[in-house]
């Protein structure tokens, strides 16, 4: 791990520790981003990462995104980093503040389910072969929230103000792949946190006269969970490595498929291990597991990406599968 990355991750840990109390999490949940956390991140320069000529390498920015997934931060940090990457690639001047991103896939008038769309200063929208930078202050027609209480808003494109637009080849596909990459990386972080919650719990919780960690059934459930987390992380790392310049769709498809599968299995196993305590609002487990369920659906669920991989390979023919896999690295 590079020194700069290590330092950045430790800084994020400190910011979260200082600003993201349970009360602050609850205030943001099903409401809006934590302004306090966002201000602290901005002060440390973390909301100004992502542009292609940044001195912070893409892999380091994605390590920060993974850590933000681990911390389940209720702010559009990941979206802002990725939006800046897209804007700088299309040669659009980078605005200040939070930016989110959305794809206009079928020429629709409204963008539905835009992450933090109601509060972000700007939205990057991909439409066919062009990239748009919009201001949407007066264009938010509906505020909604996903399972994790994160804003997923509806924006009326007719009411949005265009700040700039530039051509970007296959912008819609590129943005969806970049978004899926983002969520895969965040999922890897959230899986790690979920496992950590579980290990703490099974070591502390005493039943039948011993910590439940001593029971083989629990040990095996934790082993499976650790394997799923490791696989998701390996797949996400592989996608980040392949996507330094631009999202590599196949590597991203693998990552979103694998991380999405791990998310469902892990959330279920975590709640099984926790019993009723994990079903309470009081225990912080749900900040991670609700995000596992939400993020696995964003920018294409694992089933959609698996299907894309399957169709791609079917068209190429089984005999070409191996060459495709070995070309990945």
């Amino acid at each position: 791990m590079s020194d700069i990355r290590d330092e950045m991750l430790r800084t994020l840990d400190r910011i979260v520790e200082a600003n993201l109390t349970i009360a602050e999490r609850e205030k943001a949940d099903g409401n809006g981003p934590s302004a306090k956390l966002w201000a602290a991140l901005t002060e440390q320069g973390m909301t100004a990462l992502g542009e292609t000529d940044s001195e912070i390498p893409f892999a380091d920015a994605m390590a920060l995104v993974a850590r933000s997934g681990y911390h389940a931060v209720p702010v559009p940090l990941a979206e802002t980093i990725m939006a800046r990457r897209l804007l700088s690639r299309a040669d659009i001047a980078l605005p200040e503040g939070s930016i989110t991103l959305a794809a206009r896939a079928g020429g629709q008038a409204n963008l539905v389910g835009v992450a933090y769309g109601g509060t972000a200063a700007h939205v990057v929208v991909a439409d066919g072969d062009s990239l748009h930078l919009l201001q949407v202050t007066n264009a938010v027609v509906h505020n909604a929230y996903n399972q994790a209480g994160e804003p997923r808003d509806t924006i009326d494109l007719g009411k949005a103000k265009t700040i700039d637009r530039k051509p970007l080849a296959h912008a819609t596909d590129v943005l969806i792949a970049e978004g899926a990459l983002l969520r895969s990386v965040q999922l890897a972080g959230a899986l790690s946190r979920t496992l950590e919650h579980c290990l703490t719990w099974v070591n502390d919780r005493v039943q039948f006269g011993k910590p439940i960690a001593r029971f083989q059934a629990i040990q095996h459930a934790m082993a499976i969970m650790a394997s799923e987390a490791a696989a998701a992380r390996a797949a996400a790392d592989m996608a980040v490595e392949a996507s330094e310049k631009q999202a590599d769709w196949f590597a991203v498809a693998v990552a979103k498929s694998r991380a999405g599968e791990a998310a469902g299995k892990t959330a279920a196993a975590a709640h099984a291990a926790f019993g009723a305590m994990g079903f309470t609002r009081e225990h912080p487990l749900h900040y991670s597991t609700r995000r596992l369920w939400a993020w696995r659906d964003d920018f294409g669920s694992e089933v959609i990406w698996q299907s894309k991989i399957g169709q791609h390979m079917a068209a190429k023919g089984g005999e070409n599968l191996w060459a495709t896999l070995t070309e990945m690295n």
Partner: peptide
């Protein structure tokens, strides 16, 4: 396709590991 694609994603990940 999704069933088969899932296997490919798992295989690619296992190769990495």
């Amino acid at each position: 396709a999704a069933d088969l694609g899932r296997l490919v994603a798992n295989l690619a990940t296992l190769r990495r590991m």
